[in-house]
């Protein structure tokens, strides 16, 4: 049943998000075509003139800005669509149908979450493809050469720790995206408790979570300033054990986001199963 949920969610997302991702790729293509008309470098007697065609520069920069905006819009739309799909599917009229299906609240959440994450990663992949297009040619090859060179140097310096860093980084990225979506779902789940202005309450909850996080961060920084001797000894340890510190930081962040995701998930599950309000 969950597979069918995922399948129909997937089709629904595809109808909206695929054109957006294709637009990003299209803008990258346009930018690359514009680069065909790049004026050649001319050498004067006093050094290299990098070519001062004002028309080309203005068109190129405009298309580049458009490209960057299209990436931002694509990622933003991906998140917005996921949130809207969740709200409509779970807490609006569609919810009457969805909650009659032989599926538990956890399975609903998992289905929505998996589809959202899939399309978020799909958007990132589309951005990657667009980057490959915009740098297509020599530049692309040189970028990969530079990347592999840096990786090779990192392996020489840090050995297998680099592979672990990459793995931990990937896990952290996935967990942070998961936590982001679950937080948004949590805000909507709390918001749906209200009789009126459900979306407004959801925004309020989102803002409240942000404020709480800021307060915790401020308290931490203040305590660091007060207990500077203790934190000085920590920073000394960090400078002596840099490699281990990065592992601790990454793994700590993974645990943090995992716990956060679990908390949000449990809140979502509880509200969806015990406090559902479709009125």
């Amino acid at each position: 049943m969950v597979k069918k949920l995922i399948k129909y969610d997937f089709m629904s997302y595809l109808r909206i998000l695929l054109p957006v991702q294709l637009i990003v790729i299209g803008v990258a293509l346009i930018n690359r075509i514009i680069q065909f008309f790049e004026p050649p470098l001319t050498k004067t007697g006093y050094g290299v003139d990098t070519g001062s065609s004002a028309i080309y520069n203005s068109i190129f920069v405009s298309s580049l800005v458009l490209y960057i905006i299209s990436i931002a819009v694509c990622l933003l739309i991906t998140v917005i669509i996921s949130v809207v799909r969740f709200y409509r599917g779970m807490y609006s009229n569609e919810g009457y149908l969805n909650h009659t299906l032989p599926v538990t609240a956890s399975q609903h959440i998992w289905a929505k979450l998996l589809t959202s994450m899939l399309f978020y990663l799909g958007s990132l992949f589309a951005v990657f493809i667009s980057f490959m297009i915009i740098t297509a040619g020599d530049l692309n090859i040189e970028i990969f050469k530079a990347g592999f060179y840096v990786l090779g140097k990192a392996f020489n310096s840090y050995g297998a720790n680099i592979a672990l860093y990459i793995l931990e980084g990937v896990i952290l990225l996935l967990l942070s995206v998961t936590a982001m979506y679950l937080k948004l779902y949590c805000c909507l789940s709390v918001g749906q408790l209200a009789k009126k202005r459900k979306i407004l309450l959801a925004f309020g909850v989102f803002f409240g979570i942000y404020v709480v996080k800021q307060i915790i961060a401020t308290v931490f920084i203040a305590s660091a300033a007060v207990n500077y001797v203790f934190f000085e000894s920590i920073s000394e340890w960090i400078s002596d054990n840099g490699i281990a510190f990065i592992h601790i930081l990454l793994c700590g962040s993974i645990v943090f986001y995992a716990v956060l995701s679990l908390v949000y998930f449990l809140i979502n599950k509880y509200l969806m199963s015990k406090k559902l309000n479709l009125a």
Binding site: L29, R32, Q35, F36, E38, P39, P40, L41, V48, T50, G51, M132, I133, A136, G137, D138, L139, N140, I141, E142
Partner: peptide, 15 residues
Amino acid sequence: VLIAFSLCSCRNLDS
């Protein structure tokens, strides 16, 4: 498209 573009270079890279 990618193969076609691989025939082009970038002037700053050439520099």
